[in-house]
Structures are given as C-alpha cells and as structure tokens.
Amino acid sequence: MHALNIQDLRKVYRNKVEAVKGISLQVEEGDFFALLGPNGAGKTTTIGIITSLVNKSSGKVNVFGYDLDEKVEMVKTCIGVVPQEINLNAFEKAKDILVNQAGYYGVTRKEAKKRADKYLELLQISEKANQISRNLSGGMKRRLMIARALMHEPRLLILDEPTAGVDIEIRRTMWAFLEELNQLGKTIILTTHYLEEAESLCRNIAIIDDGHIIENDSMKNVVKKLQREVFNLTFEAEVGDIPPFEGMIFQKNGSHDVSIEMPTKGNINSLITFLSQQGLQVNSMRPKRNRLEELFVKLLEDKKNHG
C-alpha cells in the first residue's frame, strides 16, 4: 500500500511563483524516504500541501488511501509533521505542548500525559518537561517538535530538515531514534540538505529541483551515480603544475592548496606516492563533503544532455 501517492501536484502562489510544477511521487508503507533538493526547490511547499498548510493549485494527494480533497481529517490523522522552522509556543511548558497537541487529535488527556512522558524520555528531554519552550536549547526544541509530531502515533512521519542547526552528537541520537521508529513500521519522509544524512537513513530518494522531480530511485542506485569524489589537499611548499595521473583531475585553489577529483575506488596510497615523487609533501588531506551539490550538478548535467 502507498503511504503517500501524489499525482501531478502543482502549486502557483498568488505572486505567480510556480513552486511545484506537476510532481508525481509514491512512497511505500514502511519506507524511509528522502526528499532532497536545494533551497526553493519545492520541498517545503510539497510538504505544506500534504499537511494542509498550503492549498494546492491542482493535482491529487492520497495518504494511506485517503484522498486529501475528500477525507482531509483522516489524512491529517495519519500524518505527523516536524516543520523546518521552530514553531513551538514559546511560553508553554514542554509537556503541556505535547499533551495539548495529542488532544487536538482526539487523544484523551490521561493517555496524552502517558505518551508525553514516554516521548520526552525517548528523546532525552524529560528533565525539561516543565520548562517553557523558550528556555530550551535549539537541539531540545527540535527533539520536542519530533515528540509533538508523534503524540497521536501517526502512520506517516514527515520531517522537514529536522537536524538543521543541530550539533553532530544530537543529530546522531536523532538518527538512531528515527531508524528505530522506522524499524517499528512507521513510514518516514525526510527532507534534508545533507546527503550523508539521507544516505545513512533512507532507502529511497526523490530529488526536486525547480518544482520538478529530477530523480526518483533507490538510495543505492542514486549514490552509485556519484562515482567520483573530491579531496582538498594542502601542501608544505608552494605547488606548481602537477602532471596527469591515473584519471585524476588536479585543480589549484591557492599557492599551497589543490583539489583532486578521483574515482571513488581510486588508490589514495598511489596518489600520495605519486605526489611525493613530484617533490610535493602533503600537510593535510580532507574529503570535500558537499556530495549533495555534486549530485545535483551531475543530475542537472544529465538532464541537460538528455534534452
């Protein structure tokens, strides 16, 4: 069964900006699905439409068999959403936020309190239960928003860049929590700027650019397309021209800095040996971690080449 089935979805805002230009997308029940794209690509608008925060211009949205136009209440009941921007009531206590949210979905107060304690504990913020949300750190606010989205135990959890601005330790804790949720059967859709995040969590992926889906495949297949990677090297001494070596591309970034693009299965030892033979001593070597950007460039190039 499709957890989410979108057909030819379009959104034109009042200022005539066409944010979504005919997106069709299916997400299977139980999937951990990544929705990637640069800023302004249409991800948040798409999520806004699914969660009823944005009115669509045309197209169909179906969630677990419920049509958004005909059974909007049922669609909403199936979905838990963690928005990109912090949208907590700054003056409400963490636990009250959770209990009230559950109430809006028809969960009794007694049950809501139990669930609030459970999710505060699972997301490691139970000691902040009686703090107003304004006093929580950025990471705690993010986790509270995840807890809030789970209070009515939705079948589909949508997270719009949930780890933006969160330090790596908390990010990894959140990843582990989301993986566990997915293993328990919850369908998760994640939008992110970090391909590494999507790569480590998601099984399937769609990439949106300029309101269109430019890629929709398994994560494995998409990552395969990234057959090259880039390293930034800093040398002890000033660098002159470097002769060609085993399909690697050298690009000078400064007097001591060079970027090297090489096949993902390229041999780093032979590269270092080669550079030593040229009299170049490497001081530091760092992988260039903007793989998402590379992927976009590649996909856009492919799209262009294939008309």
Binding site: L53, V72, T77, E85, N87, E92, Y104, G106
Partner: peptide, 10 residues
C-alpha cells in the same frame, strides 16, 4: 507559527 499545531490537526 504554533497556530500550525491546530491547522495540521484533524
């Protein structure tokens, strides 16, 4: 934007 809590609810 916490009004969204209500708007996304059923």
């Amino acid at each position: 934007r916490h009004l969204e809590e209500l708007l996304v609810s059923p």
